[in-house]
Amino acid sequence: MSGKVFAEFSQDFSKNLGGTPQPLLQVEGLSKFYGARRGCADVSFDLWPGEVMGIVGESGSGKTTLLNCLAGHLAPDTGRVLFDTRANGMQDTVTMSEPERRMLGRTDWAFVHQHASDGLRMNVSAGGNVGERLMAVGARNYGDIRERAIDWLGRVEIAAERIDDRPTAFSGGMRQRLQIARNLVTGPRLVFMDEPTGGLDVSVQARLLDLLRGLVREMGLSAIIVTHDLAVVRLLADRLMVMKDGQVVETGLTDQVLDDPQHGYTQLLVSSVLQV
């Protein structure tokens, strides 16, 4: 990896903000089976630049399987996942070589895990965690790396003086914010999130949601958020996809799906939420 690659995609970042006339991600007929059991079946959708899509459903509905197939963590059995790469336009990430896919994984894609400890290096300082993706794409100036790490810690509301502390010394909410900083520092275009607010206190959740909303807007990010929390998708997602038993039962504008659900399962899901 050379410094040149790094410089190139730093410049490219500005291009994200102007919309392109084609989808960023096109999913066609995606299926994943675990033996005879269906993980997810025949999922198709387009995600456009700047769009945030929520995937909801109960545990075991296949939403996490789908997310892992999209992010290249699992190999689907059938289907295509086309991503609009900076260099070569639409490419099927299922069939591309592993180096290319992993390169996407640390440049244009980001993955926010439910448990921050899965997405952070717990024995590395906060600054090192944020800097890793920069160094992975060729950054070799300690001062610059540190400056950008401090900038990002600030954006996720972590005090600069915590830069040399390890995440083990952080609260759950701080760890999750650090994970987000670590993921977004290289200016990705597509963020996958798996239950990003799961396991956090309600007050901490609100802060995180606000932060994510701001970052999505400022960076023009596209995102796919898997969650079972309908309040989270109402606040974050433009669009919703409802899954049941590995299949998509309903899609649409988030508030439309939640306020006027068409499918019986969605109606059940929405009416099961306790009103506060």
Binding site: M1, R102, R106, R121, V124, G128, G131, E132, R133, L134, M135, A136, V137, R140
Partner: peptide, 8 residues
């Protein structure tokens, strides 16, 4: 050749 970690 993913050596970012070494610099970490």
């Amino acid at each position: 050749e993913e050596y970012g970690l070494m610099h970490v």
